[in-house]
């Protein structure tokens, strides 16, 4: 009985207040979409870190004919130097840091170079002699790049030690900024949503003051008087969350599909990740609207 009564009150309240309810739905939709986008971008960063950090390596480039660094003063790397470097990489002192060591000859370097820059006219002009040989070093902990860099930078026959992770960090930096921007928009929109819920509930309480006055007089409990208003806000917010979730799903489904086709190596997140984000959106929407309605009712609905 009470349940049916509360439902009826919610329905009549939302009907009377339809325009406001629709605006609450739209504003929560936008704000939660940005919240979700920020969350998904963070997940994307994590995914790429997981994917790439296992694959990125520290490259120890060896000297070639025209290397300019100090350790290459004696000309191209000699067989002894190369052997010494390899031995050092595989030495017990470094075994705590070094996971794998692969040697890349000048010919292999040319093959990789041609792969990466296919269709570019430079490819034709480059010969294997111009490209350095290198040791590709996989690290146990990619953060410990400094150790390798320090150990080999001044080693005779080593030109430079480069950490491929640096390029990734740059990409992650951009994604991070995008995610922060999304979060900033989300915060502003959420404040707007909270205020709008407050106004809506206030109007709703005002338009039903006759009913609530009578409820108070005949001894209806505080919960029964306030529940329809709070649920009105919460339902509107949950509708907003549902639309936001649908939007994010569509973006991931179709946008993600396109990106994966264009950049198959990048490891993009899929609609699976929504399982993490969507419940959070619903919870956040319901919490914001519920708290905002309750606070408003404390001020504007005497019980």
């Amino acid at each position: 009985m009470r349940f049916a009564f509360v439902l009826g009150e919610i329905a009549s309240g939302m009907r009377r207040n339809l325009v406001m309810v629709v605006s609450v739905v739209l504003v929560t939709f936008i704000s939660l979409t940005f919240v979700g986008a920020a969350g998904l971008l963070q997940l994307q960063i994590n995914q790429m870190k997981g994917y790439w950090y296992d694959r990125v390596q520290v490259a120890v480039f060896l000297c070639v004919e025209n290397s300019t660094s100090e350790s290459c003063a004696s000309g191209p790397v000699t067989d002894e130097q190369r052997a010494a470097i390899e031995a050092k990489l595989k030495s017990p002192e470094l075994s705590a840091y070094v996971d794998t060591v692969e040697y890349e000859s000048q010919d292999q370097a040319l093959v990789h170079f041609r792969d990466q820059l296919a269709n570019s006219p430079i490819v034709e002009a480059v010969t294997a002699e111009q490209l350095p040989e290198s040791f590709r070093v996989g690290l146990v902990d990619p953060e410990k790049y400094e150790v390798i860099s320090e150990a080999f930078s001044s080693e005779p026959g080593v030109d430079i030690v480069s950490d491929q992770r640096e390029y990734l960090e740059e990409i992650f930096g951009y994604i991070n900024i995008a995610s922060l921007v999304a979060l900033g928009i989300a915060v502003v929109m959420s404040v707007g949503a909270i205020l709008l819920v407050a106004t809506t509930i206030r109007l709703s309480a005002f338009s039903r003051r006759r009913e609530t006055g009578i409820m108070r007089l005949v001894g209806a409990s505080k919960a029964i008087i306030q529940l329809p208003f709070v649920l009105e806000g919460v339902i509107a917010a949950i509708l907003g969350a549902a639309i936001a979730s649908g939007t994010l799903w569509a973006v991931l489904r179709y946008g993600g599909e396109w990106l994966s086709r264009e950049y198959p190596q990048m490891g993009f997140i899929s609609t699976q990740e929504l399982l993490l984000v969507v419940p959070a959106l619903f919870l956040l929407g319901a919490l914001l609207a519920g708290a905002s309605s309750l606070l408003t009712l404390r001020r504007y609905l005497k019980v």
């Binding site: 009985m1 009470r2 009564f5 009578i214 409820m215 005949v218 209806a220 008087i225």
Partner: peptide, 11 residues
């Protein structure tokens, strides 16, 4: 009926 509904009386 409103006065009875809001304090949870049955139909």
């Amino acid at each position: 009926a409103f006065a009875m509904q809001v304090i949870g009386k049955s139909r």
